[in-house]
Nucleic acid binder design. Structure first.
Lengths: 154, 154
DNA sequence: TTATATTATATTGTGTACAATACATTATCA
DNA sequence: TGATAATGTATTGTACACAATATAATATAA
């Protein structure tokens, strides 16, 4: 028996944070081949999901939906614009806002993306019930942590 | 009722991937004030957890423990070295390997880190049972996804 | 024992993430 | 109305994250 050099609380295998962090990156890798085939990154794909759903958004709205700030979104959106998938234009009503909308090419990409979710289900080797259950638990945790973060901002 | 512009599979709220991704980033934010106070980043903290546990590691071993590659670890380890927390030295037995170990200052930091896990438990507002249960489920998911990724590498 | 393959790390380039700051625009109040 | 605050986006700087490639050292095989 080797002498312990740390405590149970600090063991990597007991860290929920690490498990989630590693999970997130491994899932991104799972998407990689499919995202490569449609030519967007994982974060860009999430932005496209938001736009397919809402048609038009401000940068702020996209940020609220994805929990991302403008320092991340601005360059990302410029790359999507350069790829011809979205339009960026200042609102005429309020010139502080930048309106993001889809080009025809951006809408066309939706068809290519349709098969991705089912491929991912396969990759996680989960049943539909497991998926629904896990999603609910994650959302619950996300809600709690997000609330704590909001409180500590004030 | 507005006309739907996307399908249920592509709705952001149905994406397990996004929920986990957002969760991971929000949890990192939860750690931020405590990590700031001990002067390391989140990824650097994870490397320190590995080293407090194993005393000495090669870069490869740290990468396997954290699912990170050398492109991420090399600069990160150099910053930890510059901060005086670790040592980096080539193995005499096999000069391809770089051995990472803790300085006295690196060990001293462990005391300051001891309080962090309990603070995080508070931030997630979970009971001990919920925590154990959730951790088991995420580990299960991580294992499955990691296996799928390993298979597709071959 | 050389040629070949494998292993371990480092480097480079692209793309996030986010804090901090700057800046222009709009809203509000004295 | 003029000053002040709040809002929305962009910019800058630091630190990952990873694919692809390079390089050096070790192991293996003919």
């Amino acid at each position: 028996m080797t002498k312990m050099t740390t405590t149970p609380e600090l063991l990597l295998e007991n860290q929920l944070c690490f498990t989630i962090y590693a999970c997130s990156r491994e899932i991104t890798k799972l998407y990689q081949p499919y995202l490569d085939s449609i030519g967007v990154t994982y974060s860009q794909y999430l932005v496209m999901l938001v736009l397919w759903e809402r048609r038009q958004c401000t940068v702020k709205e996209i940020g609220e939906a994805l929990f991302l700030d403008s320092g991340t979104l601005t360059p990302l959106l410029k790359r999507l614009q350069a790829a011809g998938l979205i339009l960026r234009e200042r609102s005429l009503q309020d010139e502080r806002k930048v309106l993001i909308s889809l080009t025809e090419q951006g809408w066309a990409l939706q068809k290519d993306a349709l098969c991705i979710p089912s491929k991912m289900m396969e990759g996680t080797a989960m049943t539909g019930d497991e998926f629904v259950d896990l999603l609910a638990q994650f959302k619950n945790l996300l809600g709690r942590v997000h609330d704590t973060n909001l409180l500590s901002k004030k």
